[in-house]
Design a protein around this nucleic acid. Sequence first.
DNA 1: TTTTAACACGAAAACGTTTGCGTAAGACTG
DNA 2: CAGTCTTACGCAAACGTTTTCGTGTTAAAA
Lengths: 348, 348
Amino acid sequence: MKRKITLKQIARELDVSISTVSKALRNSPEISEDTKQKVQAFAKLYNYRPNNIALSLKNRKTNTIGIIIPEIVHHFFSKVIRGVELVANKRGYNVIIGLSNESFSKEVINMEMLANGSIDGFILSISKETLQQQDYHHFIETMSQGMPIVMFDRVVSDIKCDKVIVDDFKGAKNAVEKLIKNNCKSVALITTKDYVSVGKLRTQGYLEALQDHKITPQAELILKIDDTMDYEVHLDKLEAEIEQLFKSNQSIDGIFAVNELYALSAMKVASKLGLRIPDDIQVIGFTDGVLSKHSTPSLTTVSQHAQHMGERAADLLIDKLEKEFETEEEEFQTVVIATELVERESTK
Amino acid sequence: MKRKITLKQIARELDVSISTVSKALRNSPEISEDTKQKVQAFAKLYNYRPNNIALSLKNRKTNTIGIIIPEIVHHFFSKVIRGVELVANKRGYNVIIGLSNESFSKEVINMEMLANGSIDGFILSISKETLQQQDYHHFIETMSQGMPIVMFDRVVSDIKCDKVIVDDFKGAKNAVEKLIKNNCKSVALITTKDYVSVGKLRTQGYLEALQDHKITPQAELILKIDDTMDYEVHLDKLEAEIEQLFKSNQSIDGIFAVNELYALSAMKVASKLGLRIPDDIQVIGFTDGVLSKHSTPSLTTVSQHAQHMGERAADLLIDKLEKEFETEEEEFQTVVIATELVERESTK
DNA sequence: TTTTAACACGAAAACGTTTGCGTAAGACTG
DNA sequence: CAGTCTTACGCAAACGTTTTCGTGTTAAAA
């Protein structure tokens, strides 16, 4: 099996020293035109490319950034990755991914695997299990060893680092206000349990929108789904819960769901119960997945601009990596990405 | 900014040599129990981990595999990645991704970026542009430098390497036969232009199914979409074309589409034209995306088992990487993943 | 003719590991 | 007491780069 050609081999072949070859290839004025030409021609012929690993070792810089996400088969996360990849490549970086699979231990293992020299910094979104256990030592440790972290979407305020988040609160509030303006009198909320920060914020947005319009929130209109169970599999259970919500509250004429699947399930259940969308009931979801766009009726959603989040996160990280003089007082930014209400057929 | 601790620092601190530290940590019998304890305790205290880059350089092995795919915001590809990641991590490898964005030049650049020592081997799916230009020199070159490649899904027979493909032909044939058995008399095909290998094979499957049932294929029932245009954006154009197909061929009572979006669009158009699914018209798609499962009516599809493809591809690659004695005669495998018809509401 | 400067190149160190080999000190054998 | 064997460690090379510094040769200046 042939190996890639190295400086040493070129040097031996051309009967010069390794340093001469290196300098010739980098067009150093130290080297005569003759030699340069000879070396460059030979290098081109054999398609020489400097070994990245050797460079990384020498420069103590890998030009690679690590992404840790809970799940890749997920429109939101893959869009974020695309954003990261876009600016990373543009700025000369590679992207290496690790999946935590929503598991604490896999998150830790994956981070350790990458932190030992493979990458220069992390971009990550915290797994559900980690959020539940509230054990963040691996983040702290990583950062204390000089490796910067940028968190996105699922973040915790305990950790001091750069963050890119969606304005979940305002996005939710806008959505609910939209429903209220559209004449909904009884808006229900389908959300997650509170430990998921984004679910919590969206719930708060819902509540404040109601209060701003002098509507008293009713506990029975709020359905909190236990999302530790894989709802892709237990779709029927999810739908059953939603059906229950509808049946116990016949007055419902508006639904705000904190994600796409909940919204879609709500629409499905509503149709099944003979409710017309958006005439009898209006629905708004949260996300910019594919389902919303292609469902019938198509779903009005709060778009998170996932790709843009990825881009901002990458810029934040690379900026930090390339800042020559590290200010003694580390300063961390939190970038808030504005949401956008994409109106489709599920609202009037 | 603190850096990670190295052998050298431990050695200096404990006043022993670097080699002693290294051996002590690896539990070499050369080192006395006393020293081992001292070193190991110190290393643990400072959370020492060997630097991966240095190891990669020394071992000439990175334990990282590179994935190049045309697009990550795509259910199929992200499922493949998940499969790759799963077995890669299990077998001690990292995964680094590059997106070609369906562009030839980005594919080349990305491969070159990774091939220079960053990874041990590639898993990739060819970009559309590359397939069109039929320029495969970068694959050949990469392999000639001793870096193995495993291709999946979109492959070309010209290149000798390991491959993992879906049985597009049989999958399509089965689907069309299903429609015929379900009493469809006039089955239309919505496919891509022929340069995409998978589109071509699926078209052939369609044709053979018809012929096996003594049905003469009709050119006007075959709609070839120019998929170089971004159909997410030009959805209306796609639907217009499909509508034209329906209107010129009122007899159509079955549709086989080579991907999810075409199938969904067909259903949407059919509904618009007042056709009931599956009573008046039955539809089958090809893929295992999310849309099929959650559309109304849900779509019967040919599942490709994307995750399984990723797993097989990773195993194939790692097997090759770890085979000690390279047989002189390189042997390449082509693994064919069986498809599965997932029946949902769009067929009887 | 001697001194100096320019030129063109090579040696070596460094990045962080691992490992084969050499060796000093002490223990043991005869 | 001389010779041999263990024990426990250090040295150095290697992986592939880049870069600083040193040096020999030649041409120009004094």
